[in-house]
């Protein structure tokens, strides 16, 4: 009989640490309250001969004490929880990226070299992996108990989840946001492999004789001719090398951090936010790309010009 799920991520052990601390704290306070009640119930039961003189109607110092002490402890717990949360929300820049597309009722994952899987996700041990996730219909949620992580996956938006696996093996993932009839069957497994095995697995997905280039985002980027305007120097559009995560100055004076949603918006509705110093000439690609292609392109742009656009490090 298990009491905690298998543990296979760096953040997971920190979450467990905080969880056990909270368990201890709760047990202490629950025992304190239950013990006091029990004691009073025995000591002051109707038939008992006890000193009942001068029962206090109120006690200000006591009230302030039992406000202040729990509150101080809670502040500490809050802070530790917030720390972990911020860590969970900030993927390291060198994380290898996998695209995750959810739909009723399956998960599709795609490595940056184009290798795709259904209800499975292969990742290398000890290296940070970042999932770029979107849904094609309703809200789902990607939940890996062994990593102690989950994140809702929304239609027409991107959310991310990152982790560094610490154990080789297979771990379940679930859909944890109710999504209709097949919700309970949106189950898959994360396969954590040694980096060497992972490289081998990644390469094995390539059909023999196919062109070297299989990053679907990179293929799209070329085929759609993005680079004709978005050149490093003197382009008609802003250069896109290393754009992801940068703060961009807009023509109306506002600034915006170039995240996945901004990149997607700029592909579909280029006129919505114009980069300062560039003309509003880009055509809309709304309807020209399938949702999956949109995601592949955004995923590629995230890695573009960062030295990670080809394949994960050897």
């Amino acid at each position: 009989m298990r009491f905690v799920p298998p543990l296979a991520s760096v953040i997971g052990s920190q979450v467990d640490g905080l969880f056990w601390f909270l368990c201890g704290l709760s047990a202490f306070f629950a025992a304190l309250i239950a013990g006091t009640i029990l004691f009073f119930c025995i000591r002051y039961r109707e038939g008992a001969d006890a000193d009942r003189s001068h029962p206090p109607p109120r006690n200000l110092p006591l009230e302030l004490t039992w406000i202040a002490i729990p509150f101080a402890i809670m502040l500490g717990v809050y802070w530790r929880g917030a720390q972990l949360f911020l860590r969970e929300r900030k993927p390291p820049p060198d994380a290898q990226q996998v695209l995750v597309v959810a739909k009723q009722w399956m998960w599709k994952t795609q490595q940056s070299n184009g290798r795709a899987e259904i209800n499975e996700l292969h990742v290398p041990l000890g290296r940070p992996t970042k999932l770029l996730m979107t849904s094609q219909d309703v809200i789902h949620s990607f939940f890996v108990p062994a990593f102690r992580l989950k994140q809702d996956v929304l239609p027409d938006r991107y959310t991310t989840l990152w982790f560094t696996p610490t154990r080789v093996g297979e771990f379940r993932f679930f859909c944890s946001q109710y999504c209709g009839m097949g919700h309970a069957s949106m189950i898959g497994r994360v396969v954590v492999m040694r980096p060497k095995d992972f490289e081998k697995w990644l390469a094995s997905g390539r059909t023999p004789g196919a062109p070297q280039e299989q990053d679907p985002g990179r293929i799209l980027f070329r085929r759609k001719g993005c680079v004709a305007c978005h050149r490093k120097v003197d382009g008609q559009g802003p250069p896109l090398e290393g754009i992801f995560g940068k703060t961009v100055l807009l023509s109306d004076g506002r600034t915006i951090v170039a995240d996945e949603d901004y990149l997607l918006e700029s592909i579909l509705y280029p006129a919505a936010k114009i980069v300062a110093g560039y003309p509003n000439i880009m055509p809309s690609y709304k309807g020209q790309l399938t949702p999956e292609e949109e995601s592949q392109l955004v995923s590629y742009l995230e890695r573009y010009g960062t030295g990670r656009q080809k394949e994960p490090r050897p």
């Binding site: 709760s26 972990l84 992580l149």
Partner: peptide, 29 residues
Amino acid sequence: LGFIGLFTIGGLTGLFLATLGVDVHVHDT
């Protein structure tokens, strides 16, 4: 008396859910 006991446990476990890092794991479970 039963109320106090059960409400206390409910309240204390609410703290787990208010704690960001822990809620990410237990949310929707």
